[in-house]
Simulated scan of single mutants.
Amino acid sequence: MKRRQIMTGAATALALVLSGGAWAESHSDKTKVGFVYVGPVGDGGWTYEHNQGRLAVEKEFGDAVETVFVENVPEGADAERVMTQMALEGADLIFTTSFGYMDPTINVAKKFPKVKFEHATGYKTAPNVSTYSARFYEGRAVQGTIAGHMTESNVVGYIGSFPIPEVIRGINAAYIHAKKVNPDVTFKIVWAYTWFDPAKEADAAKVLIEQGADVILQHTDSTAPLAAAAAAGNVIGFGQASDMAEFADGPRVSSIIDNWAPYYIQRTKAVIDGTWESAMTWDGIGPGMVGIGEITDKVPAEVKAEALALKDSIASGDYHPFTGPLKKQDGSDWLAEGETADDGTLAGMNFYVEGIEGDIPQ
C-alpha cells in the first residue's frame, strides 16, 4: 500500500540508479533484484524500511545478487515505465512497494512472464506476481492502548493518507483499543491524501492539535507530524513504519516498525533456487513483520506493561485486535461476543466501527 512524492524526470533517476544498459550485460551472472519506491530512501519511514530490506538482501547474498532501486516514483504511468525499464535491463525479481503500483505491476508482469514481481499491500496476483503486506493494524491496537491512557484532553488525532482498507483498518484498531482503556476518548481524523509530503503532514498535525488532540497517530511516511508535536510541546506521537528514534527524547513514545528484510531475503532466495511461486503473504507481530519500537519512559510503567502484554497476546495468537462484540458506525451488528473478524472482511474494510465520528471519503 503506498507512498508518493512527485518527482520530475523519473526516467532520469532510473538512469542514475541503473547506470545504463551496460548493467544487464556486465552482471548477467548475478540475480538481479529491483525495487520501486514511492518516496525517497531518506524519508525516515516507509521507503526507508523497504530500502533497509534491500540492503539486507545485498548483505545476505553478497556477489550473487545485484540490487537496483528507483525512488520517488509516482503511482501510475511513471511506475509502469520504471518497472518496464527494470525488466528490460535484466531484473529477475522486482519489488513494487506501494499500493498504487498494483495495476502497473500486473500490466508489466504480463509483458515479462519470466520476471518475478512482488507487490506490496495489493490484492491482485498472477502466475509471476505475488503480493505481500503486514498486519499493521496489530501495531495500531498497541498504539491505541497507549494513546487512550496517555491523552489528557481525551482527543486523539489521526492523520490518514488515503481512505483505503489498510488505513481504515488502522484507524478502527487504534480506536477500539483506545476506547477500551478510556471510554471518554474521541478520534479526530484528517485525510492528507498523500503518502509522503512533509508540508501536508505537518499541516494535518497542526490542524489536529488545534482541535484539541494531544496524541497524534499517523499513516503517512515522514517525521513531520512528530516535528509538529515537538513544536507544540505537550503532544505525543508515534513512529510510523520505522522507529523514528530521533524523536525519542521528545514526543515519540513508541513506533510501528515494518521489518521487510526477512521476506525480501526469502523471496530472493526462492528466485535463486528456482522455487519461487506466486503467493499472498500477510504477516504481523508474531512472524516479526510488524515490530513495536521501544516504549519510552514517558509512558507510565503500568501502561507500558499493558501495551506489551497486548503485543505478546497478539503475537501468540491468543488475541485478535478485532474481537467482538463490535458494531459498525451505523449501529448495525458486526461481530458477536468472542467472534473475530475474518481476513476477507479486513482486507476490504470500508467502514468505521461504532463511535468514530465522520464519514469515510469516497
Rank of each mutant, 00 (worst) to 15 (best):
F112I: 08
E75L: 08
K59R: 12
E210V: 00
G139I: 10
G39P: 08
K200A: 13
T145D: 04
D29H: 08
E294T: 14
M7V: 05
F117N: 02
L310W: 04
K180N: 09
A232L: 02
I159R: 00
D43S: 07
G239P: 13
A227F: 01
I295M: 05
E89Y: 15
T345I: 10
G233S: 05
W23H: 14
D197Y: 05
V271W: 02
I292V: 06
E118M: 06
D249G: 14
I236D: 11
W276N: 03
V271A: 03
A309H: 09
L16G: 14
F136A: 13
K124E: 12
R4M: 04
V271D: 03
L14A: 13
A301I: 05
K2T: 14
W195V: 00
D330G: 06
K298E: 07
G233M: 07
Y158V: 09
V129N: 06
E306L: 11
S28R: 15
F351C: 00
V57P: 05
V36Y: 05
I94D: 08
E60S: 02
I216L: 14
P325G: 05
E80A: 15
Y175D: 05
L16K: 14
A87H: 09
G100R: 12
R81I: 12
G44N: 11
G62Q: 07
Y263S: 02
K114E: 14
I189N: 08
T131Q: 03
L55I: 12
E152N: 13
G21L: 14
Q329S: 12
M289D: 10
F136E: 13
E337T: 10
G355K: 08
N72T: 14
Y48P: 00
A279Y: 01
G291A: 04
E60Y: 00
V82N: 05
A24H: 14
G122S: 05
Y319I: 07
L217S: 05
G284K: 07
M349V: 01
Y48L: 13
G148R: 14
F136R: 01
K114Y: 01
V73N: 12
D312A: 15
G338C: 10
G237I: 12
D197A: 11
V235C: 04
P113C: 06
S28E: 15
E89M: 11
E75Q: 15
S28T: 12
Q218D: 06
V185E: 07
A87D: 07
S313M: 04
S278V: 00
E60V: 01
M1N: 12
G144T: 11
G160W: 01
T223R: 11
A204T: 07
M244V: 08
D184A: 13
T323F: 03
R140Q: 09
T97S: 14
S19G: 09
K327L: 10
Y132A: 01
G358E: 08
T12H: 11
Q218I: 06
S313N: 11
L208R: 14
T105N: 06
R81Q: 15
D243T: 13
S153W: 02
N172R: 01
I356Y: 02
Q211P: 04
E138Y: 02
V36T: 13
A120V: 13
F112G: 09
G144F: 07
M86R: 11
D318N: 07
T125C: 00
N128P: 07
A309I: 06
D243L: 11
A213N: 08
